[in-house]
Structure formats: C-alpha cells, structure tokens
C-alpha cells in the first residue's frame, strides 16, 4: 500500500507506530478534513481487537475503532454514552467516526469523550513497551493536546460498570438539530441512597479548552442530602462557574456561561431520590 499501512492486528500496528511517524486512522471523519500531508496513515479501521465492545465485570470496554453507530447498537454501551453519541453529526458520520478517534483528535467538543468523563472513564493506551491506563482527565490536556506518546495507540475506552446504570443527565446545545458541533454540552451521573448523594459527576463541553469534570466540587456535593444540594444549588453552580474558563468561539463566553449554569441548575433540580 502506497503511503499507508493496514496491519491486521494491534501488535503489528504498535510495531509500525514505534518504528515510524504515522497518522493513526480509525474512522477518517476528522483526519480527512484536516488531511495532513506527507505522513503515511496507519489504518486501524479493520483491526478486530479494536472493534470489540466487552464487559469484563469491572468495565465496559469499547474498542478504539468501534464506530458510533456500532456503539448505538450494542446493549453494553451505557445510556448516557448512547445519548451523547446519537446526537453526533448525522448518520454517515456516525457510521464512520469512532470512539478512539473522538478521543484521540483532542477536540474540546468531543461528545463521546464528555460522556466518558461523566462515567469516570479511562483510556487504555498500548505500545511495544506495554500499556497504560489513564483517567480521561489525565489524557485530555487541552484542545489539540493529549497525553498520548508518539509510540502509543488508543486501544480501548473503559467505562466503570458501577456508573453505567446510574441515573444520568445529558443535554447538548448545537447550532441546529443535526450536523451540529456542541457549543455547550453537559452530562453527569449520580446515585442517591436514603436521601444522601453517594455519587455525582458532571462533565462539560464549553466550560474550558478541554472536556472536563471538577472532582473537587463533586466532592462537596457527595455526602450531602438531595434536599441540601437542591436548596444550595445556586452556590454549587457558582462554584462551577468560577472554576471554568469561558472562551469565545462560535458563540460568546457569556452565552456559554449562562447556558452551562442554567443546565447545571436543571441537572441538580432533576436529581431523584
């Protein structure tokens, strides 16, 4: 193959990756728009190990080359992830775009990555020298920059099973009803026992230059009663707003801030239990 490699296995792929500068290619929907020249592509789209969705008891493991459409068809993929993925672009893009690509391209508007954050997900990276599992918060550094090394490939997204069946909140605001990039999106899961919040996550698109959670704020919510949290919703929302940096892009910072705060309030008010 001229200017490309199409390994049959992950082993072969990481061997090529360790040897030479290549551009990992999973679904193509992002890389073909940017279309960097002069560097061969490493085609991962037909590597069986990267196309699996598995339940290992602790994690739901989504292979990096699983397409969004394939994810939507799977019974294993949690509801919040499905909802996020179902709103990505349009069918032809969901048919090609992958979970690994969405994470690997470092977009700060990656819907599946945001849902992964909400689920406290991790990423499994592999290379010839072994593998690393990183929380998404460590992997996503800022727009366009991730913690991946030049010799690594994304193998799987790991979603902790304990979070997968929790009640969730998800809202995406794009420029239109389809084919729209998130201007603001928010997703989170929670659990309540005897009126006390035991688990709470909230992840955001539009609250900085990277998809993000704020674990220190989450910690102040966990352990409180639902009633307390609802009564003090304003305070929590303000704490979030202060931790975020709202930037101007396709929409203004003021818009992003207002909508994120409104939706976060809505999230808190809709907590059941």
């Amino acid at each position: 193959m001229v200017n490309g490699y199409k390994p049959a296995t992950l082993q072969e792929a990481i061997a090529i990756r360790s040897r030479e500068k290549v551009i990992p290619y999973a679904g193509g929907t992002d890389v073909m728009v940017r279309r960097p020249e002069g560097v061969p592509f490493l085609f991962l789209n037909d590597i069986d190990e990267l196309k699996q969705i598995k339940d290992d008891g602790e994690y739901i493991r989504i292979g990096a080359a699983v397409t969004f459409t394939e994810g939507l068809k799977s019974d294993l993929v949690p509801a919040v992830m499905k909802e996020a993925v179902s709103r990505i672009a349009a069918p032809a893009i969901r048919n090609a775009g992958t979970f690994g690509g969405n994470l690997g391209n470092g977009s700060d508007k990656a819907d599946s990555v945001m849902a992964g954050f909400a689920l406290d997900g991790r990423v499994r990276l592999v290379s010839v020298s072994g593998e690393r599992i990183l929380p998404l918060g460590e992997f996503c550094i800022r727009r366009g920059v991730t913690a991946i090394r030049d010799d690594e490939l994304i193998a799987e997204i790991l979603l902790p099973k304990k979070n997968c069946d929790l009640p969730y909140y998800y809202k995406k605001i794009g420029g239109r009803n389809a084919l729209a990039i998130s201007r603001v999106a928010i997703g989170g899961v929670y659990s309540v026992k005897d009126g006390v919040i035991e688990q709470f996550t909230a992840a955001f698109i539009g609250g900085g230059n990277v998809c993000k959670r704020f674990e220190e704020i989450e910690a102040t919510i966990i352990g409180k009663t639902v009633d307390e949290v609802k009564a003090n919703a304003e305070e929590y929302v303000n704490a979030y707003a202060e931790s975020m940096t709202f930037t101007r892009g396709r929409v203004s910072a003021e818009y992003r801030k207002t909508v994120i705060m409104n939706l976060l309030k809505d999230f808190i008010q809709t907590i059941n239990g």
Binding site: M1, G4, K6, G28, T29, V31, F41, N45, A92, A96
Partner: peptide, 24 residues
C-alpha cells in the same frame, strides 16, 4: 463531511466518501 452529496455505501453503510481515505 457536512453535506452528504458524496455519500456512498460501504458494506451497505452510508458513508461520506470525502471523509474516507483509500487505505480504509
């Protein structure tokens, strides 16, 4: 990948051909 005018079926699945590299 924003208009669908170039959509084709790959293994029966709708795909925008502008966003597909030949190797794939």
């Amino acid at each position: 990948g924003e208009c669908g005018a170039c959509a084709v079926l790959i293994d029966g699945v709708l795909t925008n051909s502008c966003c597909v590299a030949m190797g794939a």
